[in-house]
């Protein structure tokens, strides 16, 4: 078993969920109405839980005997492996919801497949996470429809969000040498197939929403190589401040 590859992939997934959660958490106290405030923080909490499970598994197999907190709070931007999509600022509600939908659809397909991973700890985590991401998808899917098929103003905002986000999504399915190896060993599913399945569901939804799919944009890439947008640095500065300012403390 290629431990280095597994370690790399666990961090890829953990960083994705952590950064996604971090942006959602920014909505706390600022949601469009009370019930939705609670719902968004609920999703943030679930994703944080997934991140924690993934970091803990990575920590267990890490060569330097790191802890989950070490991985989350002491790695710099160039060591983070999330796709650029999840580090983008939270934006308005339409931006948040559409981004969430893209990630939820990805997670549902991914975790469904990962339940059958040849790497048991990952299969175990996927089994737990799937229940929650199914619910997340139901929610974000519903909101995409609500925003697209109601008022002109809402339609405009979600169209704008689609224009901004669409070309960040292919990166979710990007592969590298490590991930190629994991696919070959059936530890992770075929990413090309995953992408096709994802695209199929997304196409159906976007059509139902009567949104215009943008034709051209910059295809985001770099997360797997630790090459990020400017946004991640600010996010980590905020998130990691205490651990950096007071190194070696118990909290």
């Amino acid at each position: 078993m290629n431990e280095a590859a597994i370690y790399h992939y666990l961090l890829r997934l953990a960083d994705t969920s952590l950064t996604q959660s971090q942006r959602l958490a920014e909505w706390c106290g600022h949601g469009p109405f009370l019930e939705e405030d609670i719902a968004l923080t609920n999703v943030a909490l679930d994703l944080l839980g997934h991140a924690k499970m993934l970091y803990e598994q990575a920590a267990e197999i890490s060569e330097q005997q790191l802890s989950a907190d070490d991985l989350a709070f002491l790695r710099d931007v160039s060591e983070f492996k999330n796709p650029l999509l999840t580090e983008l600022p939270r934006g308005n509600f339409a931006f948040t919801i559409l981004k969430q939908y893209f990630v939820d659809q990805f997670h549902v397909l991914l975790y469904s497949a990962l339940r059958h991973s040849m790497y048991a700890p990952l299969a175990h985590i996927a089994e737990k996470a799937l229940k929650e991401v199914n619910y997340h998808l139901e929610r974000s899917h519903g909101w995409c429809l609500r925003l697209s098929l109601s008022t002109e103003q809402a339609k405009m905002k979600i169209q704008e969000a689609l224009d901004d986000l669409y070309f960040y999504t292919p990166e979710l399915f990007e592969s590298d040498a490590y991930l190629d190896d994991l696919q070959a060993q059936q530890i992770i599913p075929d990413l090309t197939q995953l992408q096709a399945d994802w695209q199929q569901s997304v196409d159906v939804l976007l059509a139902e929403c009567q949104l215009n799919v943008p034709k051209k944009g910059w295809l985001a890439t770099g997360g797997l190589r630790g090459e990020h947008s400017e946004h991640l640095g600010y996010m980590l500065a905020e998130m990691q401040f205490l651990q950096r300012a007071y190194p070696g403390c118990q909290w």
Partner: peptide, 20 residues
């Protein structure tokens, strides 16, 4: 009780608020 635009939303919100 809670506020929602439709029963679908109400069910989801109820799940988030009352079954935490």
């Amino acid at each position: 009780s809670l506020h929602a635009a439709d029963s679908h939303m109400a069910l989801q919100n109820a799940r988030d608020v009352y079954t935490r």
